[in-house]
Design a protein around this nucleic acid. Structure first.
Length: 261
DNA sequence: ATGGTGGCCAAGCCA
C-alpha cells in the first residue's frame, strides 16, 4: 500500500520549506511535483533526504517548467517524452518495485486566447494533449498511474462557474474534448472523481484574487488517473485546500490518493 | 472590458 501526492509547487527552491511541511504532515510515500522551475542539480535534496525521501527522478530546466518524483520507496527512472517537441521539462516517469509506472505531467497552460490561429501557445497545448492520446493509444498502458497539472478542468463541477468559464482557457469545450480523448485512449480512470463523485472540487485558485478563500473561484486542474487494472485499488482521495492558505503558498493545492497494491 | 498577483531573474516572459 502506498499514498501518492501531486502538487504544482511553483518553484521548488522558493518553497522548499512548504514541501518539507507537506512531507512531515502527510507523509505520502511518493510526491510528484510540477513547475519546479529549477535545473535538477539545484533541487534542494538534503532536507527531503533527511525526511526519508531518498529517491528522486526528475527533469528540469532553468526558470521554467520542471517535474520531479520524490519517493521514500525505491523507484527507477522510466524515461521521459518531449510532448509536442517543445523542448520543455514537462514529463518524467518512474517505476516502483511492484511494477507500477508513475507518469508525472505538466501540460502547458496555453495562454489567454483559446484560438490556435491567434495564440501559438493554445495550439501547443492542444498538440501536447493530442500526442498524449496517440501515445496512450499505441502503448495501451498497464499498472500505471498518471498524475500532474493537466491545466484542464473537464467537468462542470470542476470549476466555480461552468457558464462563465466556457471561453476561458482550461475549461473550453475543445480542451475538454482533447483531454477526454487522451483519457479514453489509455482507458484511464479519474481516481479523484471515482472517490469524490459529487460536488464542486478545485485544486487551484488564482493569485490574482484578493481573497481566494472567500471568493472561491477555483478550478480542478490537478489530477490523479490510474489504469483499470489497478484503479479499484485506489481510495481515500483528498485535495488539501488548507495548503493553499499556507504562508507564501503555491497557487495549487496538493491532490492525494492511496493505492492498496 | 479590464486588471488583478506571483516567480524567474533583473526586462520581459510565463503562469
Amino acid at each position: 500500500m502506498f499514498t501518492l501526492a501531486t502538487w504544482n509547487i511553483n518553484s521548488v527552491r522558493l518553497r522548499e520549506g512548504l514541501v518539507a511541511r507537506l512531507l512531515r504532515e502527510e507523509a505520502p510515500d511518493i510526491l510528484c511535483l510540477q513547475e519546479c522551475k529549477s535545473p535538477v542539480e539545484k533541487i534542494p535534496l538534503t532536507m527531503f533526504q533527511e525526511l526519508g525521501y531518498n529517491w528522486i527522478v526528475a527533469r528540469g530546466q532553468k526558470g521554467y517548467n520542471g517535474v520531479a518524483i520524490l519517493s521514500r520507496l525505491p523507484i527507477e527512472d522510466a524515461g521521459d517524452r518531449d510532448y509536442a517537441k517543445l523542448g520543455h521539462a514537462r514529463h518524467v516517469a518512474a517505476r516502483l518495485e511492484n511494477g507500477v509506472t508513475i507518469h508525472n505531467m505538466y501540460v502547458p497552460a496555453g495562454g489567454d486566447i483559446p484560438d490556435r490561429e491567434l495564440n501559438v501557445k493554445f495550439g501547443q497545448k492542444l498538440d501536447f494533449v493530442s500526442e498524449m492520446r496517440d501515445v496512450f493509444h499505441a502503448d495501451n498502458p498497464q499498472r500505471s498511474i498518471l498524475v500532474g497539472d493537466l491545466n484542464i478542468a473537464p467537468r462542470e463541477d470542476d470549476v466555480w462557474s461552468h457558464k462563465q468559464l466556457l471561453k476561458i482557457v482550461s475549461h473550453t469545450p475543445i480542451e475538454v474534448e482533447h483531454l477526454l480523448a487522451a483519457q479514453d485512449a489509455g482507458k484511464w480512470v479519474d481516481v479523484t472523481r471515482q472517490d469524490i463523485p459529487e460536488g464542486l472540487l478545485y485544486s487551484w485558485w488564482s493569485y490574482r484574487s484578493p481573497d481566494w478563500n472567500a471568493a472561491d473561484k477555483g478550478r480542478r486542474l490537478d489530477h490523479i488517473w490510474a489504469t483499470p487494472d489497478i484503479s479499484n485499488a485506489a481510495h481515500g482521495s483528498r485535495i488539501l485546500r488548507d495548503v493553499r492558505g499556507w504562508q507564501q503558498p503555491s497557487d495549487h493545492a496538493p491532490v492525494l490518493a492511496t493505492f492498496d497494491l
